[in-house]
Amino acid sequence: MLLVIIAWAAAFGVYLVNRPDASLLGLSVAYAYSLLWWVVAVVLFVVYAVIDLRGA
């Protein structure tokens, strides 16, 4: 539960980089940060599920 709260708190990091300037693939800094956050969150969830389901 704590991990979930920490992970989703990181989504709010977008307010620290909330700029339209071009970055990765021409995306704005804010968009690129959010996309990276999403990839990391989904990968963490999938890895957790795989470990959990194998254990189950």
Partner: peptide, 21 residues
């Protein structure tokens, strides 16, 4: 603009985690 992505990427994954737990 991208506002919807920032929020929706967080709430859709949260929904799935909630379903899981």
């Amino acid at each position: 603009g991208i506002t919807f992505w920032v929020a929706s990427s967080a709430w859709t994954t949260m929904a799935a985690v909630f379903m899981y737990l």
